[in-house]
Nucleic acid binder design. Structure first.
Length: 188
DNA sequence: CTACCGATCGCCT
DNA sequence: GGCGATCGGTAGC
């Protein structure tokens, strides 16, 4: 995965990452769900400029940005253009599912990596990986074709920019965190 | 299947 | 002091 792949707008990278295979120390699988965030985006951590927490978002493209969510969980982003990143929300638990099951305390493959916090727990990602490059150990990223059609919809869990269609997922995948959210029609 | 709640803490106003 | 790029449990349809 060349560095130039990440040095692009996060929305493009987010779409292209669906189908690519992520492994951390060998544990992982094909990415099935992503979200894009950038500096112009009111829902992005980078919207108000650099802080201690989001420093990695303003660092080099192709590195990790890991943050703590709700004081409990870790979430993994892949840094793109300065101040932008792609949040990894779900993947298919294809490689070393036994390790993921042990870390998660369950073995239902549909629940192992379905959500940004679950994904990090299954792959062993913590703030120890914040700011580290993605092109060397423990990370391994490889191109791959998505197992179905990639569709875009609004992002999950936000209160701002709810309708911005920057969530990308494999339509019909059993491994996504939530199904496609339809855009509300006029009159709803 | 969806809906609500509590946990828990870094970051912001 | 308030609010999240969340999750697991419980309740209800």
């Amino acid at each position: 995965m060349p560095a130039a792949f990440f040095a692009r707008p996060a929305v493009q990278v987010a779409r292209d990452l669906v189908g690519c295979v992520l492994r951390v120390d060998g544990v992982g699988g094909p990415i099935v769900e992503t979200e894009a965030y950038d500096r112009t985006d009111p829902a992005s951590h980078s919207f108000a400029g650099p802080t201690r927490r989001n420093a990695s978002m303003f660092g080099p493209a192709g590195h990790a940005y890991v943050y703590r969510s709700y004081g409990l969980h870790w979430c993994l982003n892949l840094v793109c253009e300065p101040g932008s990143a792609v949040l990894l929300r779900a993947l298919e638990p294809r490689y070393d599912p036994a390790t993921m099951a042990a870390r998660r305390g369950l073995d239902d493959p549909r629940r192992l990596c379905a959500g940004p916090g679950r994904l990090c727990q299954a792959l062993g990602v913590t703030d120890a990986q914040d700011g580290v490059p993605l092109d060397r150990a423990p990370f391994h990223l490889a191109f791959g074709a998505p197992d179905g059609t990639v569709v875009a919809c609004g992002r999950i869990g936000l209160t701002r920019a709810v309708e911005t269609p920057w969530r990308f997922l494999v339509a019909g995948s059993r491994f996504v965190s939530r199904p496609v959210r339809p855009r509300p029609r006029q009159g709803d």
